[in-house]
Structure formats: structure tokens, C-alpha cells
């Protein structure tokens, strides 16, 4: 299984530059190309390669919806082993859930949920709570975002 990459220094720099952000411009890759002293075509060729290797998942916008009043919470549940599959299905079917992870802990299933308002969030949680076979649930509402960013390098 090929999971480790030894990228040359240029590719590593490119990965970091991608994560730092591109300009919102008609040709966002052109500026990047200039930073690397290569043509736009060459930069695009490298990006396609990184994507093909699976290192680059996508290029898109990152948003901060809290600016629009969107609220979120992290929810931890204790689900009995045999109920894990069913619980995961119920959570997956909820459109307001973005992430759900099984974790090594008494509270063994953790998901994040977002909604347009605190009232809406409460409604969704009430609905999920009655459907989920959880023995214990904690709802941890977001008070402050200190950091929301990925910045990795390979190798």
C-alpha cells in the first residue's frame, strides 16, 4: 500500500502554498505559478498530479457561517456495540451532520451538527435524540472558534 510520499521540496512548498490560500481572481493559479517561477500550465500540471496521487483532495472555498448566525455543536453519545451500525445510519441520514466518528472512549460516537438558528439546532437534536439508541448523550455547543484550518506537509 502506497501511503507515504517523499515529495521534493518544490512539491512540499506547493502543498503549503495551496493550504495558505489562493487569490480570488479570474486566474488564481497564475499568481501561484509566478511565486514558483513556472508557467500556469506547469502549475496546473502539478496540481493535477497531486490530485491524482490523492494528496490534494480538492480546491474550494472555506467558509465561516457563524458570520451568518449559523450555530453548531459537538455531540458525544454512548452507543452499545451492537447498536453502532444502526446509530451511524441514523446520524448519516441527518443532513445537518457533517462529521461522525467512532472514538475510543465511554462516549464512543461523536458528531458535529450545524443549523440556521439555536432553535433549529434544538429541534434537530430533539429529533435525533429520540431516534438514536444512545445510553448517554452530551451536547457541547460551540462558544468560540480559535482555529479551523488544515495545514499539512507530506514526507
Amino acid at each position: 500500500m502506497k501511503t507515504r510520499y517523499c515529495l521534493d521540496e518544490n512539491m512540499n512548498r506547493l502543498m503549503l502554498a495551496l493550504q495558505a490560500g489562493l487569490p480570488i481572481a479570474a486566474r488564481p493559479y497564475q499568481d501561484l505559478a509566478a511565486d514558483f517561477g513556472v508557467s500556469e500550465t506547469e502549475i496546473l500540471r502539478r496540481l493535477v498530479w497531486l490530485k491524482k496521487q490523492g494528496l490534494l483532495k480538492r480546491i474550494n472555498f472555506s467558509f465561516d457561517l457563524s458570520k451568518l448566525g449559523v450555530v453548531s455543536a459537538l455531540v458525544g453519545c454512548r452507543i452499545a456495540g451492537p447498536d453502532m451500525g444502526r446509530a451511524a445510519k441514523i446520524i448519516a441520514a441527518c443532513g445537518q451532520v457533517t462529521h461522525n466518528y467512532a472514538r475510543r472512549h465511554r462516549l464512543n460516537m461523536w458528531f458535529t451538527i450545524s443549523a440556521a438558528s439555536p432553535r433549529r439546532l434544538k429541534e434537530i437534536l430533539t429529533r435525533l435524540n429520540s431516534a438514536l439508541p444512545a445510553e448517554e448523550t452530551v451536547v457541547l455547543s460551540t462558544e468560540k472558534i480559535y482555529k479551523l484550518r488544515f495545514r499539512f506537509h507530506a514526507g
Binding site: A20, K57, I59, F61
Partner: peptide
């Protein structure tokens, strides 16, 4: 501030 930036997502 609704859009933070345009960036690459690394696996």
C-alpha cells in the same frame, strides 16, 4: 468574513 479563503484541502 463569510468566505475565509480559497484553498487546497490535503488528504
Amino acid at each position: 468574513g463569510v468566505i475565509k479563503n480559497l484553498r487546497g484541502v490535503i488528504d
